[in-house]
Structure formats: structure tokens, C-alpha cells
Simulated scan of single mutants.
Amino acid sequence: MKNKIYIITILLLVFLSCKNNSEKKEVKAAENLKQAKRESANENLNISFLLDLSDRIDPKKYPNEAMEYYLRDVAYIKTVSEAFITHMATKKVRYMDDKIQLYFDPEPKNQNINKISTELRYDINRHNVTLETLDQLKSSYSLNPLEIYDLAISDNKYVGSDTWRFFKTKVKDYCIEQDHRNILIVLTDGYIYHKDTKIKEANLTTYLTPQVIRSFKLNNKDWKDRMDKEQFGFIPATTDLSKLEVLVLGINPDNKNPYEEEVIIKYWSDWFDTMKVGRYQIKTTGLPSNLDNIVKEFILN
């Protein structure tokens, strides 16, 4: 009788031990899955472009012998798309959930431009990813942006850039996705102006032009002291952009003011800080070959 009780006890202990180990394995597997999903979410890219199609891209008004400014934009876009494809190539298919798209503000009246921008919207996930899709994306981002700029220049109807309004009313809805790393690429010369968005509150504005910088007397060696003391800058357009990273490319200051570049960069930096942008870099226009590594490092690291 004692032997039977002993055997039953041993079997019960073995059963409970096995059950406990099985439950631990299930819990561990569930934790590993959750961790994998979290890591995957952090690697999901959501890249947006905001193009400034104001007269800054006009090769007649602002010619550049080294490389026209609109062609620099096209090359920057291509570099970003290459980084996006490189990122996709490093991911396992089951974790793919990555997006890339392109915006303007205001939207061009040319329907062909809007049609092309729609064709540059890609949402790639494990259900639709193929080598053909990635090849199509690569081809689209190599060719279509140039067509957009060619059409905008041919139209010759430059209505300014309402970048401030985009940040106020659209950036959170258009450029920020949950469980993604959200990156906005802004292609601009650094000046902001639109006839329908001219707001001034004390020394804060929704616009910035070379004329404004001169009128604020930010064109001498004391510009920074004056800017800080009298609180010149952009009006904050929104709050808490901590889930957004912004890369500004193409800053092109008026060469009549030796301090113009620093003033523009401070305007943008203070603006991003006030809106609590998660991470940002602001780069002066340069040959795309010189900025290639900088752009790819921003996106891939």
C-alpha cells in the first residue's frame, strides 16, 4: 500500500512539474512574440515628403550652374527612397508594414501632378510585398518626382508654400502612424510664405522671407541677441510632435545677408523645439552626392 502511495505521489509530482514547465514555455513564447512585435513596430518606417513647389524651383528666377535646385530635390527624394528600400531588404516578410508617400501644401491645381503623387503612395506589408512591388517603387521614385517638378515649372503658377498650415492641420493626421517610426522629409529653401496664411502675433509669424528678416533687422552681427531678446520666430503650429522625426533639406539663404543661413536655421530649430519634434536635422542645400550619406544615416540609424 505504501509503495502504491509513493508511486502515485511521484507520478503526480512529475505531472505537475511537466505542466508547470509547459505553462512557463507558453508564457515565455507569448513574451517573445510580444517583444518581437514591439521590435518590429519600432522598425516600421512611415516616410512622408513635403514638397515646397514655390518659385524657389524656378530655374529662370534662381539658376544654379552646378545643379538646378529642383534637380537637387529630385535627387534627395531618390536617395530617401533608396534608404527605404534598403530598410525593407533587411526585414523578415512577416514583420513588414512600411509606408512612403508625398504631399504638397497647397495642393497644385494641376491634376496630373496630384495623380502622380497618388502613384507615389506605397503601403507595403506581408500580404502584398513582392520583388516586383519593390522594383516598381524604385522605378517610380526614380522617374515620377522629376515629372512633378517639370509640370510645376511648366505651369509657372507658383502659389507659395503653406508649410506652417501643413504642420497645423495635417501633419498629425498625414504623417504620424501608431507603431511606426515616423519621418517627414521637408524639401524647402527655408522660407515660408502663403498669401492666405499671414499671421503675426507680437514678433512671431507664420511666414518668413528675406524681406521679413531685413525688416526685423536680423541681418547684422547682433541678430541672435535681438532674436532672443525680442522673441522673433514662428508661431507654434501644433503641440507634441514627439513621435515625429523631421529632416529639412535644401535651405538656400539669400546671399545678401551673411547671417541669413543662421537666422533661418534658428527659426526652424526653435519652432521644432517648441512643438517638441522628437528628432530633427536641418541641412543647407548641397550637391546630392555630398548629402547622400547624411540622408541615409538619418533614416537607417
Rank of each mutant, 00 (worst) to 15 (best):
K2W: 11
M67P: 01
W271F: 06
T79I: 15
W268D: 00
T163K: 09
N219F: 07
Q136Y: 08
I7P: 06
E31A: 10
S22E: 10
Y259N: 07
D225F: 09
K229M: 08
E260K: 04
N114K: 09
D52K: 04
K243Q: 15
E230F: 11
I77K: 00
P253G: 06
S242P: 05
K28M: 14
L50P: 04
I8D: 14
D173F: 10
K92F: 12
R279V: 08
L187C: 06
Q231F: 07
L249M: 00
F272C: 10
L16R: 07
T118V: 05
P59W: 03
L13N: 08
L291C: 03
K266D: 12
K217V: 08
K25F: 12
Y62S: 01
W223C: 00
Y62P: 00
L131I: 13
S48Y: 05
A41D: 14
S54K: 05
F15N: 09
L13V: 13
N156F: 13
L45R: 00
V14A: 15
I148W: 02
E230I: 06
E201W: 10
R214S: 12
L247A: 08
Q136F: 09
K296L: 03
N112P: 05
T9I: 11
D173K: 14
T118H: 12
Q178I: 15
K243D: 14
P63V: 09
T197V: 12
M1H: 15
P258F: 06
P145W: 10
L300G: 07
I294S: 02
R181H: 09
G278M: 04
T118K: 14
V263N: 01
D273R: 12
E297Y: 08
P258D: 11
T274Q: 14
R121H: 14
P59A: 03
E297K: 15
K78S: 06
E262T: 11
Y280F: 11
V277Q: 01
N156A: 15
I85W: 07
K4H: 08
E230Y: 13
